[in-house]
Design a protein around this nucleic acid. Structure first.
Lengths: 127, 127
DNA sequence: CCTCAAGGATTACGAATGTAATTCGAAGTG
DNA sequence: CACTTCGAATTACATTCGTAATCCTTGAGG
């Protein structure tokens, strides 16, 4: 079986975000980048280790430390999460999701313009 | 503070789904409706109790049993879950979410048609 | 060389979750 | 009336997650 796509928890995803922004980075840099979370340095190292275990990141020895880099891409993660929401909450169909947003979320003019542009692009590609 | 919207877990949401489909229902009926999950009856009763604790459902005594009904609506739940995905994964913006779908999810012709209809409807409402 | 500190690895611990089993209480049965 | 039975309530228990603390190892400084 291929390395079953790992489940990233919420806290873990914030660590991934740091690596998606820039990699490779040392744990020290990662800790620094997460200063605003208020997490203890130990906590962040734990999260890094869990991500290693899940093979969501890799660590390459570089002198005495490791340099971490993501193995799971942000796009892959977004896909998993989106699909999960779609399946769990909207019966697996996209339209009801957007319908929901259109009814319950405030879509800015910009949102709407972007959506229209996207639909146009999709339709052009499909036809 | 108003009864802080309860967090429904995945397993719990499947119980809610049964009540959203039809309510009120007895625990017996709920168990029957969830036969396909393979869950033990005890498990389902536990989930019902947890939902009671979270005030996501109410139970009205009816003779010697209870009849359960949802307090949290499906729409409310969909809103929570959607917003959570949006915030956690897409920086709170709708367009990147759809952009993601357009790139990575297979949208059926039907999906696309529905999306277009939605956009049209939205634009008509906005203008 | 010997010591110490910074990182990495391991262990901890409570809350939430999935998944039940056990116990309690009242209702029906012989 | 004593006993059984069936929901309801309580308790259980392994895993995962959030959040660290502790232990271990090795390079750097004296």
């Amino acid at each position: 079986m291929n390395p079953a796509i790992p489940n990233i928890t919420d806290a873990e995803s914030q660590v991934m975000a740091v690596l998606w922004e820039q990699a490779p980075r040392s744990s020290e840099e990662i800790v620094a980048a997460l200063a605003d979370t208020g997490w203890h340095e130990k906590t962040i190292r734990t999260l890094l280790n869990r991500l290693l275990g899940k093979q969501a990141v890799a660590a390459d020895r570089h002198g005495r430390r490791y340099l971490y880099r993501p193995l799971l891409s942000r796009e892959q993660w977004q896909s998993q999460e989106s699909r999960s929401l779609l399946d769990r909450v909207f019966g697996g169909r996209v339209a009801p999701l957007l319908a929901h947003f259109s009814r319950h979320e405030k879509l800015s003019d910009k949102d709407i313009a972007e959506l229209r542009a996207l639909i146009d692009a999709i339709e052009r590609k499909v036809r």
